[in-house]
């Protein structure tokens, strides 16, 4: 254990980061709106319009985050009688961590995976795939759910869900703008030099903003996976369950293409293991081997 992050520190950091993230993304959106407005005519109409949309979108993202995440993977509430073990494990872990009980969901997917979402522990949800319920034994499932509960306890969920939603928005705006350029043709030539400059700035912003925001998101989300693994062990008092689960995930061969349709790229960082299974800079998760290695040392 080289560097140990205290939980309170991490929670405070996550809350602070969430706030700054929203702030920065709103600024980016306003800047985009202004530049796009400059190109297409009245910048102030766009500015006011853009600001209002950005704020409303952020509020919806903040208060509806867990519902959006659950809806986007088409998950259904878990039935208490049908999935008794699932409920028992989470109830036990909540007792172990002193946390309120999250709402439990199940998504139809053969991959072993799970995610947590919400703006705070009181409004949190946990969702597991049907694959996880079928392939993991009780002990391993407990490890996975403990990992998800740690994300909730550390307020990772607020930050990660907000990033997912806001990054998604920047991407959408940029995409719409860039596409609109193809169709608008050379209609704005009469605006002269300043028009061209703003057009260039607009294109540059539209291309760079999503990449920049996403890189920040990726770097941060990889680090917190390790932290969540560590606190998962704190709840269950043994790493063996989580190690077993990660090993099973590592060795399962699922056609990634089929699951790609179901899981939007934006919410990938929420999952316990990367649903797209790529292990490089663009990955939202550290490599499974590395995580197993660290857990085995505990």
């Amino acid at each position: 254990m080289a560097e140990r992050i205290s939980f309170h520190e991490q929670i405070a950091r996550n809350k602070r980061k969430s706030f700054f993230l929203v702030f920065i993304v709103i600024l980016v959106i306003i800047a985009l709106a202004y530049v796009i407005g400059k190109i297409y005519g009245d910048p102030f109409v766009f500015l006011i319009f853009g600001t209002i949309i950005a704020i409303i979108y952020s509020l919806i993202g903040y208060y509806g985050s867990s519902k959006l995440a659950v809806a986007s993977v088409n998950a259904k509430p878990a039935d208490r009688h049908e999935h008794r073990q699932y409920y028992h494990i989470v109830e036990g872990l909540c007792l172990a961590s002193g946390m309120p009980m999250p709402k439990l969901y199940i998504m139809e997917n053969k991959q072993i995976n799970a995610f947590a979402s919400g703006r705070n522990p009181e409004s949190s949800v946990i969702c597991v795939t049907t694959g996880a319920l079928e392939k993991l034994d009780k002990h391993e499932l407990e490890g996975v759910l403990s990992h998800e509960l740690s994300h909730i306890a550390n307020y990772d969920i607020r930050f990660m869900t907000l990033t997912a939603i806001l990054v998604g928005m920047v991407a959408i705006i940029s995409e719409i703008f860039l596409r609109s350029l193809w169709y608008s043709g050379g209609g704005n030539d009469n605006k002269g030099k300043s028009g061209v400059i703003f057009l260039l700035i607009g294109i540059l912003l539209a291309i760079l903003a999503p990449i920049f925001v996403q890189l920040v998101q990726l770097a941060i989300s990889r680090k917190r996976e390790y932290a969540a693994d560590a606190s998962a062990v704190k709840f269950t008092r043994t790493p063996t369950g989580l190690i077993g689960a990660l090993k099973k995930i590592k060795h399962e061969h699922i056609d990634v293409k089929t699951s790609k349709h179901q899981i939007s790229k934006a919410i990938a960082p929420l999952f316990i293991s990367n649903p797209f299974k790529n292990e490089d800079v663009t990955s939202t998760h550290p490599s499974l081997s590395k995580r197993i290695e660290i857990l085995e040392k505990m």
């Binding site: 028992h88 494990i89 172990a96």
Partner: peptide, 12 residues
């Protein structure tokens, strides 16, 4: 399940 929960509650 209760046995597990008792253990967890005691741990907490």
């Amino acid at each position: 399940a209760i046995e597990d929960k008792v253990a967890y509650a005691r741990q907490y």
